[in-house]
Nucleic acid binder design. Structure first.
Lengths: 115, 115
DNA sequence: AGGTTGATTCGATAACCCTCTAAACAAGGT
DNA sequence: ACCTTGTTTAGAGGGTTATCGAATCAACCT
């Protein structure tokens, strides 16, 4: 639990975004700009142990397994999740740094509350 | 400048997202998941006076006026910006509440540091 | 009234993305 | 070896979206 202070405006509105930064950021945002992928991300992140098996995820949707697999690949390519095969099943976990990077764009800048 | 404490995980990973919430959120994210719109948003938000004329924005891109207008409409429909005509020109400004809502999804939850 | 400049709407085209089926790959059990 | 279950890859179809040119609307100026 860290104390911080909120100041001023989110990074996005602190100065004009460069074209390259905009392209990179948009790619990351596109990865989460889908209802299925948002739910996948939230299901994986909130699952006990911090990881979820693909089999768990597939059942929660009215979609075929290949479709879920496709969405997981998009999230993985974007660096939002990481997958590992252990025996029969593949387990995915969230990469919190990338999620935080997303939040930092739109959140009023916070600084550590210590001198 | 408000003091807060960071605790645990971002809302997205605190529990599974409902289908409706996911759809709403994805719509908002899709609005910003585009390089041109990200730059527009950042240019408007960082412009002096907190607002920018469409004429300023159009010049910064290698795109036609109708295309810029289209992107502005997407941002406006999503509730991220608001436009107002004053005389000859139309001025846009950022709606910070909506931007903050985006950030809150991915940012580790912060709580007011008082009690 | 007519003309000029700024901004949006309309209609069309091309690229992209979500979803599916079919097929392939991976691991375990009999 | 074979079959079953879990997961991914490949290819195709249908809908969405970005972009443009042309036309329209809005306000100002002479």
């Amino acid at each position: 639990m860290t104390a911080v202070t909120i100041e001023c405006c989110p990074p996005l509105t602190r100065g004009p975004l460069s074209e390259q930064d905009a392209v990179d950021l948009a790619a990351l945002l596109k990865a989460v700009a889908d209802p299925v992928r948002l739910r996948l991300l939230s299901m994986i992140g909130s699952h006990e142990g911090g990881e979820a098996c693909v089999c768990d995820l597939t059942d929660a949707f009215d979609l075929t397994a290949p479709t879920i697999s496709h969405h997981l690949k998009v999230l993985r390519t974007a660096g939002l999740i990481d997958g590992e095969r252990r025996g029969t099943w593949v387990y995915y976990r969230v990469i919190p740094e990338t999620v935080a990077r997303l939040g930092a764009i739109f959140t009023p800048l916070v600084e550590p509350e210590q001198a």
